[in-house]
Write a protein that binds this DNA or RNA. Sequence first.
DNA 1: GCGACAG
DNA 2: ATCTTGTCGC
Length: 220
Amino acid sequence: MLSSGSQRSSEIWADLSLLQQKLSKKVKIEPLSREVRLIGGCDCGIRKDKGIGVITVVELPGLREIEWSYWVGTIALPYRSGYLGFREVPLLVGAYRKLKNRPDLFLIDGQGIAHPRRIGLASHFGVVIDQPTIGCAKSKLIGDYREPPSTRGSYAPLLDGSELLGYVVRTKDNVRCLFASPGHRTDFPDALFWILHLTTGYRVPQPIRFAHHHAKEIQV
DNA sequence: GCGACAG
DNA sequence: ATCTTGTCGC
Ligand SMILES: [Mg+2]
């Protein structure tokens, strides 16, 4: 029973899983078409049932922040691995609509297609706004890989059997790897390239760091 | 039954 | 994600 009033908890997740299967069919993995000058960094802060979604816009070259927006909303679902998009996408869409600038690419704190149904947060958000996105997660959701050397720039493919999902990337010497995967309207080389080019001195890419900082301070 | 499990 | 101070190492 898709879309109804009250329903059993088990049915809710089953319905959301079906919805993800539909959404995943809209995901396009293709080379970034635009020239990238403005990049949007996305992250959310959540406490209890109140959440805030933040998007910062950084300019290239320089990675200087030129704008940022946020959106506050109520979180209806509890966290469950594989369903993060349903909690954070609404908040990010709200912030997206308040932006004055239009980023050429969005970097999101979460997986792209490296997801059980190939529709992680970055892909989900990308399909909803139909804009280029790349997923940049701090830990793994699914897939197998061999640990890359400890030097910045090292990487290894993230695989589900023989299917490539993304890359496990060392963005800084002697720190845990990041998990990069294309979200929507970007491809694997794009994910690897941008994750490394937007990382300077810190493990997490600057755009996402800025968004994270804003979400944390506003939430007070 | 056991282990994995984005944020 | 959030709860939380100082401390060890690059
Ligand atoms: Mg986050």
